[in-house]
C-alpha cells in the first residue's frame, strides 16, 4: 500500500481511473461539440451540453509549465524530493497535471515533448505519469 494521498474515485472519475488500470489514457469527449475536456464531469465546460463518450488519447503531449518540489507536499513524498510536478498539454487539447519521471529535475523545461507511462500504485490504482521523448 502507498502512504501517499490517493484519489477519491467517484462516478465522474471512475472511467478515467479504470482505463489507466488497462494502460489507456481515456478522455471524455462531448457528444454535442465533440471537444474533449479534463477533469471529467457531467457537462461539457465548452458548450455546456450534458453527455460524453470516452475515447483513448494518444498519450503524448508538451510540458506547459512545471515546478520542482524541493520539500514533500505530504510525508508520503519524503523519499522522492526533488520531484517534478507539471501541467501537460495533451495533443488532444486538454491540460493535465502529472509527474515528469526523471533522474534530472533540473533538465526539465517548458515545451519539452512527453509521453505517458503507467505506474501501478496499488492493486486497485494505476496513475498516469509522463517521461520525455526527445
Amino acid at each position: 500500500m502507498s502512504d501517499k494521498p490517493l484519489p477519491t474515485i467517484d462516478p465522474d472519475s471512475a472511467p478515467f481511473w479504470a482505463a489507466c488500470g488497462e494502460g489507456r489514457l481515456d478522455l471524455p469527449h462531448c457528444r454535442a461539440c465533440a471537444r474533449p475536456h479534463f477533469p471529467p464531469r457531467a457537462l461539457c465546460p465548452h458548450c455546456h451540453e450534458v453527455g460524453c463518450d470516452w475515447r483513448a488519447a494518444a498519450g503524448t503531449g508538451t510540458i506547459h509549465t512545471f515546478t520542482v518540489a524541493r520539500r514533500p507536499a505530504h510525508p508520503g513524498f519524503k523519499d522522492e524530493v526533488p520531484y517534478v510536478v507539471a501541467l501537460i498539454d495533451l495533443d488532444e487539447g486538454v491540460r493535465m497535471m502529472s509527474n515528469i519521471v526523471t533522474d534530472d529535475p533540473d533538465a526539465v523545461a517548458i515545451g519539452q515533448r512527453v509521453e505517458v507511462v503507467f505506474d501501478k500504485v496499488t492493486d486497485d490504482l494505476t496513475m498516469p505519469k509522463f517521461q520525455r521523448i526527445d
Partner: peptide, 18 residues
C-alpha cells in the same frame, strides 16, 4: 498537502503538488 483528494483535487493532490 493538507487538502483532501475529492472531486477535481483528485487530479492534483496525488501527484504531490505542494
Amino acid at each position: 498537502g493538507g487538502r483532501p483528494t475529492y472531486y477535481s483535487l483528485q487530479y492534483e493532490v496525488p501527484w504531490g503538488q505542494p
